[in-house]
């Protein structure tokens, strides 16, 4: 039989990129790192008790009493397990990764909804991003961005971006034809059409995509910790390596609490926009 040297080619490509675009990757590393540290500082600056009150009030206001009470209890448990710092680090990492994913994903979704060729090209790329095991692109991420939080964020956003693109595209394509016609018949130009009609009508679907992106980002926390991204993944990884059942469980529980909080709040935002 014959050999197709896919692996060799990929290795060559990554090495070439590392050697020739090093400056570019350094710039990204610095930018992302600065952004991340800024958010971390904001989240860790107030006393945990004050932060617990703020986040619970937000949950209560957006999603109602039940989620509010859950948040109070959940975050006190997190603080009681001595996981507060890790939780805020993870929250900062997720905010950064999701922010970048949406910054790229939503415009890409809009573009795909307007242009069928773009849609046809993005679809397999998104499939690739979502199904390629995350460990595989940890390696080039480390080569490009070194160890630490930044490659973790990059790997996370690659894995988490597809739903933002897909659901933005879907949401806009699902705007009823008659509503589109009405906007045109009253003389909308393409900018007015997008911002005054299509995006607002598609907003619930787009927010469902945002929710999905956040959930997928959370599922990358442990994997990102393998390359030194820290946060709540760290105790899980340590627990695994040292067979420390208790530590691993505490880290896992904190992730679950954070996930439930983020899921309920973003879901409620989506429902409110309908």
């Amino acid at each position: 039989m014959f050999d197709i040297p896919v692996g060799d080619f990929f290795e060559f490509l990554i090495n070439w990129l590392t050697e020739n675009l090093g400056g570019f990757f350094d710039l990204i590393t610095v930018t992302v790192k600065t952004f991340l540290v800024g958010i971390e500082n904001v989240l860790l600056f107030p006393h945990p008790i004050l932060m617990i009150i703020l986040l619970s009030a937000l949950a209560w206001y957006v999603s109602g009493k039940g989620v509010g009470i859950f948040t109070v209890i959940g975050l006190f448990v997190v603080e009681g397990m001595d996981m507060w710092e890790g939780t805020m680090e993870t929250l900062a990492l997720i905010i950064t990764a999701v922010f970048i994913a949406l910054l790229v994903g939503i415009p890409l979704g809009i573009w795909a909804s307007k242009n069928s060729t773009v849609e046809k090209i993005t679809r397999p790329v998104l499939d690739f991003m979502q199904t390629m095991p995350a460990f595989v692109y940890l390696i080039p991420a480390v080569l490009f961005f070194g160890l630490g939080e930044v490659p973790g964020i990059i790997a996370t956003l690659i894995f988490a971006m597809p739903p933002a693109v897909r659901l933005t595209n879907l949401g806009i394509r699902q705007v009823p034809e008659e509503i589109r016609e009405a906007a045109l018949a009253f003389g909308s130009d393409s900018r007015q059409m997008l911002f005054k009609v299509e995006l607002p009508v598609a907003l619930p679907t787009i927010l469902a995509g945002v929710n999905q992106t956040i959930m997928l980002a959370l599922s990358m926390v442990v994997i990102a910790a393998l390359i030194g991204a820290g946060g709540l993944g760290q105790p899980v990884v340590t627990g695994l390596q040292q067979l420390d059942i208790g530590l691993g469980f505490e880290g896992g529980l904190a992730i679950v609490i954070l996930a439930v909080f983020l899921d309920r709040v973003t879901q409620s935002l989506g429902e409110r926009s309908q």
């Binding site: 009823p176 008659e178 509503i179 016609e181 009405a182 906007a183 045109l184 018949a185 009253f186 003389g187 130009d189 009609v197 607002p200 009508v201 907003l203 926009s273």
Partner: peptide
């Protein structure tokens, strides 16, 4: 665009209202 804005307007079978 100008004519659509000022000269003629349209009413639709399923109303075509903006739900938001």
């Amino acid at each position: 665009l100008d004519m659509r804005r000022n000269k003629m307007s349209m009413v639709f079978q399923n109303f075509g209202l903006f739900p938001h």
